[in-house]
């Protein structure tokens, strides 16, 4: 029994210690950065990342470190990663622009709103889990209205509650759909950053295929599907082609 308690205590303390440890490491890496020892700082940040720490600030700091090391592609990768977790991180978007400025041959962005994009944008103010919760709430609300309808003797009240049941059921279905489409969209939204300079953007998933263009390091692409050694990707100018898996790194 004693042994068990001891193990338990040890276990919980390691969990607790781990958090403190991470914060400590982060601080240490930041000091290294301030001392301009960028590659050492980067090692610390990377070990934190390997431990599975998910933090917008960690990614942002890594982006800064890569930027200072003149590895613009990786810098862009980490800024984008930070922005993926926290789109409101203003520092990351500012520094991202700095990184992109030094990038040559930038691709013009062309936005093409398909119906699913529009649906996503209109539902995006709640996450898919929140939408699911809303759906459950509406389900209970419709039960309550049903009971009210059944109990009431006044015809006006009866009428109102009867109509409200339908409204609630419809709202429940809509929020379920919103949850579904938001999740679906987020699953298919799979951005990646090209980390190889002059990566060949091919017509087909073959080495012998025609090269459409060469992509610069740091170019943002969206993965559409996977095939052996290749990713089918879409560029920001809506062009679609194939890239070798080794030449890019997904943000997710």
């Amino acid at each position: 029994m004693n042994k068990f308690i001891f193990i338990l205590v040890l276990f919980t303390s390691t969990i607790w210690a781990k958090e403190v440890d991470s914060a400590e490491k982060f601080k240490k890496a930041n000091t290294l950065y301030e001392q301009k020892q960028y590659s050492e700082a980067l090692k610390e940040y990377e070990s934190l990342e390997r431990e599975g720490v998910q933090s917008d600030n960690l990614y942002y700091n890594m982006g800064n470190t890569y930027y200072k090391l003149h590895e613009v592609g990786s810098a862009i990768y980490y800024y984008e990663k930070a922005l993926l977790i926290n789109p409101e991180l203003k520092e990351a978007s500012v520094n991202l622009k700095f990184a992109q400025k030094s990038l040559e041959g930038k691709i013009t962005k062309i936005q093409k709103l398909e119906s699913k994009d529009i649906i996503y944008q209109s539902f995006n103010f709640l996450s898919f889990n929140q939408w699911a919760k809303v759906a459950t709430i509406f389900a209970f609300l419709s039960l309550a209205l049903f009971i009210l309808y059944y109990l009431s003797t006044q015809s006006l009240l009866k009428r109102i509650s009867f109509a409200s049941i339908f409204v609630c059921v419809a709202a429940m279905l809509i929020s379920s759909y919103a949850a579904y489409s938001t999740k679906d969209y987020e699953d298919t939204y799979n951005p990646a950053i090209v980390l190889e300079d002059n990566a060949v953007f091919k017509d087909e998933a073959k080495n012998s295929a025609k090269t459409i263009m060469e992509l610069k390091e740091g170019t943002k692409v969206y993965i559409l599907e996977e095939k052996a050694l290749w990713f089918k990707v879409k560029l920001e100018n809506q062009e679609i082609g194939w890239l070798l898996k080794t030449s890019l790194r997904p943000l997710k």
């Binding site: 301030e34 998910q54 520092e91 520094n95 622009k97």
Partner: peptide, 15 residues
């Protein structure tokens, strides 16, 4: 706009 400096707090998020 200037190049922004480091963030100091590690606000790690649980997955």
């Amino acid at each position: 706009e200037v190049f922004q400096s480091l963030k100091t707090n590690l606000n790690a998020k649980k997955k």
